[in-house]
Simulated scan of single mutants.
Amino acid sequence: MDDIHKIERLAAVSWPAYFQKSIGQWLLRANFGVTKRANSVWTSADMPEGDFQLEAELFYQNLGLPVCFHISNASPKGLDDALADSRYEKVDECFQMTALCRSIMSRTNDNSRFTYKWEQEPSSVWIDEFIQLEGFSPERHKGYKHIFERMPPCKTFFKMYDKESLTALGTVSVIDGYGGLSNIVVAEEHRGKGAGTQVIRVLTEWAKNNGAEHMFLQVMKENLAAVSLYEKIGFSPISEHHYRIKR
């Protein structure tokens, strides 16, 4: 359980919201509605004193956001059932997965067909291209910009090309010997060429060169193709989480 708590803490640090407020050891997070992870109550610690549900509901209602709790294997026992009894809907079941850097490198081969570009801080163009590849609304630009600016300083924003064509993007940040992967997206027309594996390999190598021994990522359980790829290259689930939203 100690490892689960550590990974949950590192995952929260690696994806910081614009507004953050402590409630005991929990964290109320809000980021203009962009991503549930940055707009939910982080609960992977002991239960706070007082009426946490009322405090959370007032916090999000004042910001015009839905009330959302992030529930993981490190959350207090009984919390999920209590929120279900209060008619919070369960959504977006995810795996938290980890792997050793050396395991990823040994299970993947370098693909020389691709070329790369790196940015320590993401340009507006990088964010726009990420949003476009994901098929998101351009209105999400501001929210992602705030998250990316607040990520830990040891980070890189990566673009990969096949000849002159943008093929994939990805991000990694390194904290306490762990590299946190995020924003991995491959252009639809380039899928099936090994681009996803190559992005993870290259970002893992960068993280390893910057002090990481382990990697971690979050993935939707229903994304079977991604889960299968991650397991093939050395990742395994360490915990699960989901969200409870009051509609």
Rank of each mutant, 00 (worst) to 15 (best):
N183F: 11
F59C: 04
V202S: 07
I184Q: 00
E57Y: 03
A74S: 14
E164F: 07
I147N: 00
G33S: 09
N210R: 06
F32E: 12
E222M: 05
G196T: 03
C94I: 04
P237A: 11
S103I: 09
R9V: 09
A56W: 01
E129A: 02
G135Q: 02
G170W: 02
R191N: 06
F52V: 08
L58M: 14
K21E: 14
L224P: 00
E89C: 11
L58Y: 12
P16E: 10
V227K: 01
S86A: 15
Y18N: 15
F216N: 09
P76Q: 02
V67W: 05
S165V: 12
F136K: 08
S123E: 11
F148C: 08
S236W: 09
Q120S: 13
M160T: 05
K6T: 13
F95V: 04
N62K: 12
H5P: 10
L133K: 03
V199S: 02
Q120T: 15
W42M: 02
E189I: 07
L166K: 00
A195K: 02
Y178G: 05
K221I: 10
K77W: 14
L100R: 10
I7G: 00
D80K: 14
A99N: 05
L28E: 02
T167V: 03
R140E: 15
E188W: 08
I4N: 03
D2E: 14
M220S: 12
N183L: 15
Y178T: 08
L181H: 08
M215H: 01
N183Q: 11
I127L: 09
V185I: 13
F136Y: 14
M1C: 12
V125D: 15
E93N: 11
A30Y: 00
P152H: 07
I7D: 04
I175W: 04
A212I: 07
W26R: 03
G192M: 10
M215S: 06
G135P: 01
F52Q: 01
K21N: 11
T98P: 08
Q53N: 12
D80C: 09
E93D: 13
A168Y: 00
N39R: 04
D2H: 13
K232C: 09
S123V: 05
S112V: 11
F32G: 02
D3N: 13
R244S: 03
C101E: 04
A187D: 08
F69A: 09
N209K: 12
R140N: 15
M220D: 13
K221R: 10
C68H: 09
S103V: 12
P153N: 12
K90R: 13
E121H: 15
G135W: 06
H214G: 02
N223Y: 06
L27T: 13
D46C: 10
I131W: 05
W126L: 01
Y60T: 05
T98V: 15
I4A: 05
I147M: 08
G234S: 02
E57F: 09
Y18G: 07
R9P: 04
M97A: 04
Y88F: 14
C68F: 07
P237T: 06
E55M: 15
M215P: 00
Y18Q: 13
S228G: 11
D92I: 10
F95D: 03
I175T: 12
L54P: 02
F32S: 11
L229F: 03
E134S: 07
T167S: 07
E119R: 07
